[in-house]
């Protein structure tokens, strides 16, 4: 059965998107991403170090852009202007690459998104031809506005970035998913494999995570667990769960043919 994730007209087999930060070294980054099966990987855009270690290895040596779809992000940006400048640089850096992750933060302690700046940046980026996957709060109205602006995917948080608190408001996510005509991906807050499975069972198109894998005791094993959880959660969603009832007078074994 073909059940591809389609973003901006391109199909992906994996519904797990992963970040590339916080790993011990590039070898571990690569091993975890291989175990996750992810095809889309986020990267950050940062000033190059000047005058030091001109030959030090780079992330791109370990994760060649020919093998993965890069999703440059705007992590650390607190204004629409900074985010737009960062992604213009990313587009140039990655040879006219258009698929980007927009996030504009509002507060350095919680990393909660600033939705007004996010909306302003999204408008500019869409106008400039970017394919914008947008990180936002789990507010259904904002999610719809971002879709109407022309974002290619909306990515509400499950809980705060790096918190590992799991899905705090499944009801809001459900409303966002029901109203959306573009893929809805949970981005941020997933802590363990069951969180990822729940997101997929709610009907999310995919999940984007970084810390849940990188900060696990065994990141490569957790990456493998996440891959399975995403697949299991997706199949569970597609299969359609049984109705919940307090009890049922309908046992699974036959009521006839009893001995005695």
């Amino acid at each position: 059965m073909s059940d591809a994730l389609v973003i901006a007209g391109k199909s992906y087999q994996s519904r797990l998107l992963v970040g590339t930060g916080k790993y011990k070294d590039f070898t571990q980054t690569r091993a975890a991403i291989d175990a996750s099966g992810a095809e889309i990987v986020t990267v950050a855009i940062r000033r190059t170090n000047i005058g030091q270690n001109a030959n030090e290895p780079s992330l791109l040596d370990y994760l060649p852009p020919s093998e993965f779809t890069y999703l440059p992000n705007t992590a650390g940006c607190y204004s629409a202007e900074e985010a737009v400048r960062t992604l213009r640089l990313a587009r140039e850096l990655l040879d006219d690459h258009k698929l980007v992750k927009l996030e504009v933060l509002g507060d350095p302690n919680t990393l909660y998104p600033n939705v007004t700046e996010t909306i302003a940046a999204a408008k500019t980026l869409v106008k400039e031809g970017f394919e914008v996957m947008v990180y936002t709060s789990d507010d259904p109205i904002i999610a719809k506005q971002l879709e109407d602006i022309g974002c290619v995917a909306v990515m509400p948080l499950a809980s705060l970035i790096g918190s590992g608190m799991g899905i705090l408001n499944p009801w809001n996510l459900q409303i966002i998913i029901e109203n959306a005509n573009i893929p809805v991906l949970v981005d941020a807050g997933v802590g363990c494999a069951s969180d990822a499975a729940i997101a997929m069972e709610l009907g999310c198109a995919g999940v984007l995570m970084n810390t849940a894998i990188a900060a696990a005791r065994d990141p490569v094993l957790m990456a493998s667990a996440m891959k399975k959880a995403i697949e299991a959660g997706r199949e569970s969603f597609l299969a359609g769960r049984m109705a919940k009832k307090l009890y049922s007078a309908s046992p699974s074994s036959p009521t006839t043919g009893m001995i005695g």
């Binding site: 970040g19 590339t20 930060g21 916080k22 790993y23 980054t29 986020t42 990267v43 950050a44 855009i45 940062r46 000033r47 190059t48 000047i50 780079s58 992330l59 791109l60 890069y70 440059p72 992000n73 992590a75 400048r85 213009r88 640089l89 990313a90 140039e92 850096l93 990655l94 970035i161 790096g162 984007l208 995570m209 970084n210 810390t211 990188a214």
Partner: peptide
């Protein structure tokens, strides 16, 4: 000075005194 310099124009664009440049690359991030 706030505008992208496309790689194809590196040879043509001449630097001026007090130009402000940002030079970036891709690093690990989530």
């Amino acid at each position: 000075n706030g505008d992208i310099v496309p790689r194809s124009q590196f040879a043509e664009v001449q630097l001026q005194a007090n130009d402000t440049l940002e030079i970036v690359g891709a690093v690990g991030g989530g």
